[in-house]
Design a protein around this nucleic acid. Structure first.
Lengths: 212, 212
DNA sequence: TGATTAGATGAAGGATTCTTCAGGTTTGGA
DNA sequence: TCCAAACCTGAAGAATCCTTCATCTAATCA
């Protein structure tokens, strides 16, 4: 069913000529711009097309509907975050647990914060646009990477099970979300980042020391 | 500005006679029903009115617009959760830190889970309906209660500052949200609850033991 | 009982938005 | 140069939805 649902969001056709590639990129960028300037509920296909400097018809040539458009933008965003986490996991391999976690959490926070405005705008449309499926996919990637990294950590008495890793990911992404919604100052954001590191460190230390 | 924004959501008039009270309650309940059965984006005032067994005009007699209606429902939901946490904080006073945290986190999770469907449905409309303001208000209540409880905990070397408490609340609510979106089985939900307790316990233990 | 206020109705106005498609323009290869 | 394929256009169809208001009924009280 996930497959069936997702097909409705697949691009209608892919650009062949160079100008079409430019057009598609302009549409994606325009989507983000409109999302930021007008808000999710006032995002219309016409407005996006205007902003991109093309006509609505062109937009519908590449995306079957409005949802597909937003889906594509979200997919791109989550890809970046997941990649950042994966890279950090690889980077943190074989390092002490606390350090490993620190690097991973910071990578995640930084990836989110880099486009905090986009993140927040996307939260609002996620549910109507196949977001859950994308989240599930991203979480799976991150869990896999995190588990692999954890296996290389020295002095870890007990390998945490799937549930623990999921909890950490949920807490991490959930907390970031809650924090971003408070519109923190740069100083507060930095502070939150530190706290989030500590949160994950202490949890993972506890979870690997004794099970349950 | 928060005040100005919120006034647009205030009820248009309050029921005087008994039958009107019944009507208003029916409308609120119908809103939830429609939210669950049709989804947030297919929630229309006409549908809500139909479900409540009244006409649209009646709905607009008590709520100035659709947003106000959803705002009221959300307000009620968050009130319940915040109250549950406040009660748990009071209940947990003077108990050892770990136990106190356990009771508070469990109270929060249970309050959310009791109406998990409603919670999730409301997440989707929150942003368009003054949700952030309500969240801020609820967080403030919970933070205050949690801080008060923490001051009574024995053997706490260091009182955590505001940021720590906020981080715990953010992680707690954020993690719950992420978890609910995966549609967990009862067993998985129970497991997650335990993990969330451990997460908060270890974080608070770490944060009260040494600052930063 | 009669007057006044509260409550309820639902058709219709007004506005917005998504999406299509018939027809025009540009590109790239034969 | 010429043609087919790729690309673009934007007015208009079709479908929803929010909200109002003139009108009607029920309750309350003097």
């Amino acid at each position: 069913m996930s497959a069936t649902t997702l097909t409705a969001f697949e691009p209608r056709k892919t650009p062949v000529q160079a100008r079409a590639t430019v057009t598609v990129e302009a549409i994606c960028e325009a989507t983000i711009q409109v999302l930021l300037s007008h808000g999710a509920d006032r995002l219309t296909t016409t407005r996006v097309a205007d902003r991109a400097g093309v006509s609505v018809g062109t937009l519908y040539q590449y995306y079957p509907n409005k949802q597909a458009l937003l889906f594509a933008v979200m997919e791109d965003h989550m890809e970046k975050v997941a990649s950042a986490v994966e890279a950090a996991c690889e980077q943190g391999c074989r390092k002490p647990l606390a350090e490993m976690i620190k690097e991973i959490v910071e990578a995640f926070v930084d990836a989110k914060m880099k486009r905090a405005d986009v993140s927040m705008a996307l939260y609002r449309v996620a549910a109507d646009v196949g977001g859950p499926a994308l989240v599930k996919r991203a979480v799976m990637r991150m869990r896999k990477a995190l588990e692999a990294a954890l296996r290389t950590a020295p002095h870890v008495a007990l390998q945490p099970d799937k549930c623990v890793v999921d909890t950490m990911l949920a807490a991490m992404s959930g907390a970031i979300r809650s924090m971003m919604e408070t519109g923190p100052s740069p100083a507060a954001a930095r502070n939150s980042r530190e706290q989030l590191v500590l949160l994950c460190q202490s949890y993972m230390a506890a979870a690997t020391a004794r099970q349950r």
